[in-house]
Structures are given as C-alpha cells and as structure tokens.
Amino acid sequence: MNRPAALAALVSEAFEGLARARRMTSLSVALIAISIGLVGAFFLVAENLKSVVETVRDESTVTVFLKSSSTEADRADLERLAKETRLIARMRRVSPDEARARFSTWWKSLGPAARSLPGNPFPASLEMELDPAAVTSDALLPFLKLLASHGAAEEVQFDVEWIRRLHGAVSLARLTGLVLAVFLTLGAAFTIANVVRLTILLHRDEIEILRLVGAPEFLIRGPYLLGGLVQGFLGALLALALLWVVTRAVLAWVAATKNALLGVFAVRFLPASACLLLITFGLVAGLLGGLLAVRRRNLAG
C-alpha cells in the first residue's frame, strides 16, 4: 500500500464528507466555538485581571509618613530595616517641601491654598517601592507592622489586602476556566460525537459497501475520526476569532471612554500559550467525539 497516497485520500475524503454535510458541520463547529469561547472568555478575564494586578503591583509603594520629631538616625534605621527584609526594590526620601510641591502639581486648584498656609503641614516620608514578588510574600505583613511600630513612623500607607484579593480573583477565574474547560470540552466532544454519528448514519450504506468491497477498517473509520478532529479545530479557531473581536471591541470602548478608573485596564488578548491550550481543547474534544462516534457499535452494518 502506498501510505502517503492512502493518507492523502483519507484526508480528502474527510474534508469531502464535512463539505457534503456542511449544515451539520457548521452547526457542530458553532456549538464547539460557543463551548470553547466560554472557556476562552474566562481565560480572557483572568488574563486581564492579572494585568491589572501586575499594573497595581508594579506601582506598589509603601509610604512611611515620619513624625516631625524624627531624626536622621531614625530615617537611617528605617532604611536599614527595609533593606534587611529584601522586600524593597528601591527607596526614596521625600522632604516636606517636595511633598507640598507634589500636592500643588497633582491638585492644581488647591495649590495656592497650600502655599498660603503659614507653615508646611506636609510631613516628610520614606517611599519604598516593593519588589514584585513582595506582594504575595508572607514576610510583607510583619514588615509593615514593624514599620508602623517604629518610633519615628507617624503612619504607614499600604493596602496589601485588596491586592491580595485581586490576586485571589485572578486565581479563581483561572481555576473556574479550567474546571469549565473540562466540562465544556466533554460537552463539545459529545456534540462532535453526535454529529459524526449522524454523518455515519447518513453514510451507513456507503460504509457497508466499502466493507463488502474490502476497504481496510482504518480507512473506513479514518475519515470520520479526522472529521471530528477538524470540527474541533475549526470550533477552537472560531472561538479564538470571536474572542479577538470582543477584545478589540472592549479595547476600542476603553480607549473612547473618559472613565479614569478604566485607565488601569490595559486590555489585552490571550497569550499564545492560552490560545494553544484552547486549540488543544478543541482537538481533544474532536478526537474524543470522533472516537466515540466510530466505535464498532455505531459503525456496524
């Protein structure tokens, strides 16, 4: 047997079969796209929440407002403590004058009022930029407590909890996506199995004839199995295309909106690894569906 030519015949037969039953194939691909699209939507939400977490995390700064009575030795001691924890990437001292200047820049309308005050009400501070890994570190909370209890510290400003909650939300969205992926992949597999089974029923006579004239069994089943795989693959591609369109639409909406809160959202599409994962789900669903459909019980003449 000329195997490459036989394989080419098998592939062309699979595509011809799908084209002949194009309505059913389209319906199947659409249903698979919906299933995989839902999984992809969860991944997309997780991905974008992750990007928000990263944005916030990258801008995470612990601000230690110093008492007016604090000395240079106190500041040096605080800096030493921070260095020892290895949680801090960079540190910066902010003087009361610099704090007032910043206030005037950020809140332009209130700047003259601040300048008209008799003294400078803004305290000196130490700004500590956290290392990216520090947000999830167990050592962070004890460190913040240590800073707060320091004699020179008036107040420590950093809300680690909401960043952690956001982190939790990302993990939950991912986990939900994965659990959903298992169920929806099985659902897509059953959809494919039923479509392939219907196709087999439509071609029952053809299959019987092929058997009688001596067509090898793998060549009888092959086109149906391959048909399932192709449907799964096309379904996954369609799902990715739909998700991309949705992402672009959201991106356009965010770009057009004047809502400052949405500024933290740098809407982005799924990374290549997630796209490959979704295509894999499609292929697995197609393979499972095809295998379920071409069991001997269904192909018996």
Binding site: M1, A215, P216
Partner: peptide, 23 residues
Amino acid sequence: YKLLPARTVLDNVTYVQKFLGVP
C-alpha cells in the same frame, strides 16, 4: 448493485483503490 449513489461511475469503480494509495 450496491453502488455509492453520490459517486460517479469512475469513483465507484476506483473507490477502494484510492484508499489503497493507487495513483
């Protein structure tokens, strides 16, 4: 007869050969 109804005469005669890789 057991001919494949959607296939031409040529396809009916050569169907299995096609899968056996005959050019």
